[in-house]
Each structure stands twice: as structure tokens, then as C-alpha cells.
Design a protein around this nucleic acid. Sequence first.
DNA 1: TATAGTTTCCGAAACGTTTCGGATGGCATC
DNA 2: GATGCCATCCGAAACGTTTCGGAAACTATA
Lengths: 397, 397
Amino acid sequence: MILSAFNVNLIGFFGARASTVTKATDKKRTLKALAETLELSVTTVSRALGGYSDVAPGTRARVLEAAANADYVPNSAAKMLVTGRSGFVGFMLPLRETAVLDPFLGEYIAGLSSGLSERGRDLFMATVPANQSELTVLQHVVESGRADAIVLTRVAEHDERVEYLIRRGIPFVTHGRTLSEQTDYSWIDTDGYKAFADIFTWLYAMGHRRFGLMSITEPMTFRTHREEGFRDAMQAQGDADTSLVVKHVPRFDTEARVPAVRAMLALENRPTAVLSLTDELALCVLTQAADMGIAVPEQLTVIGFDNIPAADYATPGLTTFDQSIRHAARQMSTMLLDMLDGHTNTTQTLIMPSLVKRGTHAPGPMAAVATVTSPHNQDALSTEPTNYEAASDQSVG
Amino acid sequence: MILSAFNVNLIGFFGARASTVTKATDKKRTLKALAETLELSVTTVSRALGGYSDVAPGTRARVLEAAANADYVPNSAAKMLVTGRSGFVGFMLPLRETAVLDPFLGEYIAGLSSGLSERGRDLFMATVPANQSELTVLQHVVESGRADAIVLTRVAEHDERVEYLIRRGIPFVTHGRTLSEQTDYSWIDTDGYKAFADIFTWLYAMGHRRFGLMSITEPMTFRTHREEGFRDAMQAQGDADTSLVVKHVPRFDTEARVPAVRAMLALENRPTAVLSLTDELALCVLTQAADMGIAVPEQLTVIGFDNIPAADYATPGLTTFDQSIRHAARQMSTMLLDMLDGHTNTTQTLIMPSLVKRGTHAPGPMAAVATVTSPHNQDALSTEPTNYEAASDQSVG
DNA sequence: TATAGTTTCCGAAACGTTTCGGATGGCATC
DNA sequence: GATGCCATCCGAAACGTTTCGGAAACTATA
């Protein structure tokens, strides 16, 4: 059982306490107005507020007080216009209007905003209208100057958004990476290759030989990595008696996955362990297995990926890899802010997900043999799930 | 069983297809530059692009073509500055950095953005830094002109953010409403009063007499409405043998709720039906009941609220009210856009949630009596869960 | 041929901020 | 008393757009 890694803090939950909000002065609160009341020039007021050294301490104090009294807030448009920076980080919303909800959207936003708020930046969400492509919207956001930097998710193997941003020289970070030759950009990703290699070793040691893999049809890089990780580990094992059946279904199509899962479970030589690229798929396997009278985990081991909340509430609880999207998103935001603050080096971070062991795994048919011959059991996956703080974020770039 | 109400549409999922992105001309793409190449005035170019009638068709065509060729995108800061509108709708992120994730955040964003994208507006997310109050941030967002309108969630019974926005005359919509005397603003809310009144009637008709209510400590309006709805219905029934035990726990504190739930279930005259203000609470009841050896639904009926994804995966599936946050969020966005487009009338919308009947409800001790004496069974809650399209959104304002 | 009306275009101001390049005055130094 | 050096302040330009109030040229009307 894994517990929620985040504490609850209700202090200040209901917004601010008393504060001076109303200022009867309904004059336009601009620098000019401030300057006039203070009988100073606009320049001086601006520089006083901006913390420049060439303004007398007394004057600065007067300005600061007057600004506070008048509830002065600088007009962001004017500031943007003259500085050329918006202060926004742009987030491309990964959904079409009719599309199913990305289960991670909330996690992304929460993680990003927690990082951004610490350095006074805000998040700007670009929505993609039905008649426009995502690239077009991205272009508009960038060219119009509404965002200084971009966060990209759902990166595909070949992603023209990435290519555009590189060509354009805009700071950006992606969650997931492309498979293109263009590799010199900042990303953060889960080490799906190693995770799936490890899970093979672990399951093999537990006596499993016939494997099923519920994968997705979309050409996402993480799909390739995870499939390869498993295949490579299987080949490295060199046991001719191991087998792997892979099925591909559209990632967000809740209907189409059912027949694929059932076909997998109805194979004459049914796998004893089925891995899934997402928890949604794994939960579907669970449901269908129950429906077909297959006992989990006695007759079938099911492994998911993502550790979505529902994984914990399923019966039995789904054994799955935990990748904290929020953690990754938070890290993305700091990477981006570092880039914006002049540290222009690109950083590429791989995070090793931890296996959360619940109730959907059990020894396979070769269990007796395995415990004797294979020492891998201890190596591949530690019994204690590592938590995020301790997780090894190995830097690659 | 309720099915996902949203279709899957993968067309165009991977971003745009080929498009002209690179323009070798690295000149600044401004109106002035455009005007110079076209040998026209800035005014004319602007008006041609803006669709004004006082520009000759031929000229307009030339301008449009040149603009497209140069990948011209108007600078949004300049536009904001002169028009005084940002084109953004502001969303106050309902979380503190250490706070637990609002389970609806993703739904909110998805719903809002789907509505906004249709009318070319973007979403701006205001994050609240640790050292600032939510009201301060809201003020800054409004005064700096970064948002033309505001979406507020998690509205409390008395909410100074609402008061501020009313006083300031900024268009805004809330999800949930206040209990203050200030009522002339636009909101959308779930009819928790009626829902809880109905559920009492339904459960009573099923033979339940002893009720438990897991409520929250936070002074949110929906808490009051739901509690009152249930109490009023119970009083209206006028049966002296009915009883109600209410417990309040912090809404997002996953630890604190456990002892409260256990205390409720350990009562000497344990309720036969426990209602919860949120699904998280209801799922906790389920878990603890299992732990204490109480059979659900045979010995205990559990009713949730919200219909979060995990509710469907629990065993048995949680019977709960479905309120589509996404649906509400989408409607909020259109309400806001209507206000921004000049239709300044405030609209207040109550949505009746539908009960999703899964496996955690069963007849109570008085079942035999009930089926004979009470006709309410048919009235209170229809057997078929209404879907959103058919749901009656009754306008109140 | 004047006159009025229409079509098409443009100059210039305005939005509110930042910042460059001085300007002013006071003070110490030679 | 001239010189240089600070400390403190300010004028004006610039950012890129929209829009008001014409202006010019052409067409239709008297």
C-alpha cells in the first residue's frame, strides 16, 4: 500500500483574512497618477518601485507608501510591451473538445503552478479550437508574445511542436521525449525501458513464462521504450520457453480496448502475466478477467502503470508502477524557470518509477524452480517501494 | 452503471500536419514592417486585418496574403494595452502548494477550455504563492488587467473574493454560491438540497430509519444545503423513529476522517445508511466497514456524492450522485463569454444531480413495511439515471 | 461646372510602462 | 574659484497596436 505523498494543509484555505480592499479614490491607478500626487516624475516613481539605487531613501519610502495606499498594480500589458516578456509560461492543453479527459491534467497543473508560484510567474493555458491545429496555436502563442516559455506534454515520437520550438529558440520543457535526431532540448521522462526490463526479470524470477502486453496504438515514445525494455530483458534472459503477446489499442478509447483484452485472455495459451502501458488498460484487464472467471492473482498476474487513484480502490488493489506526474511537473517548472533566468543549459532527467505492490501479482507456474535457480528476485525490484524523495533521478544530458 | 458520457476523438490527436512554419525573413513581424513592404499605412493594414469596410477589396486581399506569408501574429501586449482587454479568463487555482490535489481540477480546466476555445479566448491560471492571500492574488490579477473575467471555485458561505468582484464590477462566475445577502451575481451550482431530500425519501421508502451523515468541517455552502435538505425531508416525514448522526471532518484530510468514520460505525445504534458529502469520504466508509466486518450493502447502505472515477472501481461499486464538473465548467465558460459579449444579465443555474445506482445500497430493516405503505419509491429517484444531456437545468435567476 | 456623397486611405494620438541619456545641485578636492 | 564626483531626479523615446478625425480622389447629382 502506498500512501498519499502529500500532506494536507488547510491553513489559509478559505482565502485571505481581512485586508484593505476598497479605496474610494476611483482615479485611474497608473504611474502617472501616482507621480502627480507625489509631485515626482513618472521615471522616479517607476525607479523607486523597481528598486533602483538612484532614488533617495526618503523618496522611495514616500513612493512605496503612496503605491500601497492607492492599491497600485502595474498594468501588465504595458510592462509586457516594453520589456518584451509576458511573465507567463504556456501550457498546451492536451485535449480536443470531444476528447476524453487526460487523467493527468490536474496533476500537471498542480505541479506546474506550485513551482511557478514560487517565482512569481503565472500559467497560461492555450486552448486548441476545433478548426486549428495544435502547432498553429503554439505558433500563435509564441509569436504573439503571450508566453515566454512552453511546457509540452504528450510528446510523440516525431513531434513537430518540438521541432518548431527548437528552430524558434524558445525555452521549453517536455514531459516525455521524441525519438528524432534533434535531441538537444530539455525534457523529463520516466524510465520506462528500465521499468519494463526490471518487471520482466522480477516476473520471470517469480516463475512466469508466458507474458501479455497491452500496449497503445499511438506512436508515443514511452510505448517504444517500454516495449523494447521488456523485449530486450526477455532476450537477455535467453530462455526459449518465454513468450510474449502484444496487443495495441487506442489509448483513450474505452470501448475498443475491451475486445482486445478479451482476445488476449481467450488465447489458448493464455499469458500468466499481463502488463499494461496504463492503469486504465490494466483495470480493464481486471474487469474482463473477473467477467471471464479468471482468478486474479492466482491464475493471472496483472501489472499496471501510472498508479492512478482508482488503482488503489480496485479489488484486488492493482500492482502498478508509480510515476508521480505532479512531481515531474513541478520539476519541469523549475527547469523552465532556470532557463528563463539565464542558465541556458538544457537538462534531461530520467525518473525511475517505483513498483507499488498491491494484490494483482502472484508466483507463476515455474515458481518452485525459480526460487531455487534465480537470484534475480532480490535484484530487480526491491520489496520496499521507493518514495519520490528517495527516487534516483539520474541525469543523462 | 454509468458510462463515460464523452466520446473519444483521436483525429488530429498528434498535432498538426504539415504546415508552413519557417519564414527565412527574420525581420520583426510587426504591423509597421508589413505596412512598409506593402507600401501602405499602418492604419490601413490594421483595418484590413481587422475586417473594416473602408478598405478596398483588392487591398485587403494583398494585405491578407502578405500577413499570411509573413506569419504575422499581432503582438498581444500592444493589443491589450490599447483595447484594455486581455482576452483571458482568469481561474483561481484552488490549491496551496502543500495541499492535496483538488480531484476536480482537471475537470474544471477541461470544461472551461472547451468552452473558451470556441470563442478564441484563453485561460489564465493565477497561482497563490505561499506568502500571499488568495484575495491579494485575485486583486492583482484584476487590477493588472491580466484577466477580463474570473472563474471562482470552492466558494465558501461568506467569500470575500465574491464581495470584491461584485464591488469591483468585474464579470465573474462561481461554482457554488455564497450564503451572503449579496446574491446578484452569476453562479452555477448543484442542487444538493433537493438531492439530499430525495435521497432521504428514497432510503426511507427502502426501509431505512437510522441515518449517518459524513459531512465536512469547512463552511462551504454546499454542506449547509445538503444537510438542510436531508433534515428538512426527515422532518417533513414526521416519523419519530428516524434518527440522524452527523460527523464533520476536514474535507481533504485523509488521516483525520478515519477515526470519525470508525466512530460512526461503532455506534451502539449504528446507522443502517451512511451518506457522505464526497465520494472520498464514502470510499473511506467502505474501506473501514470492510475492515470492521460490516457487510455492504447487506448491513450498511453507503451513498456518495460526485461520482469520481474510483467510485466505479470500488467493490462493490459505490452508489453515488453524479455531478458532472466538466459539464458545469463548460457552462460557466459560456455564461462568462455571454457576459463579456455584452449580455450583462446574471444567470444562476441549478443542476439536479442524478443518482448512479451501483452496489452499496440495499433495503433497510423496515423494508417489508415500506414496500406496502410507501409509494415514494417511484417518486423520489427514478430507476434510470438521467444523463447530462437530459438533466434538467432549472434556471432560478 | 459646382456640389454633395462615397470610397479609400492615412497621420497622429493614445494606451502605461521601462530605460537611456542627460540635467541639476551639492560637496569635496585641488 | 574652477574642477570633478556623487546623489538624485527627470524628459523623452520606445514598445506595437487601435482608432479618431480627417484628406484625397473619384462618382453621381443638380
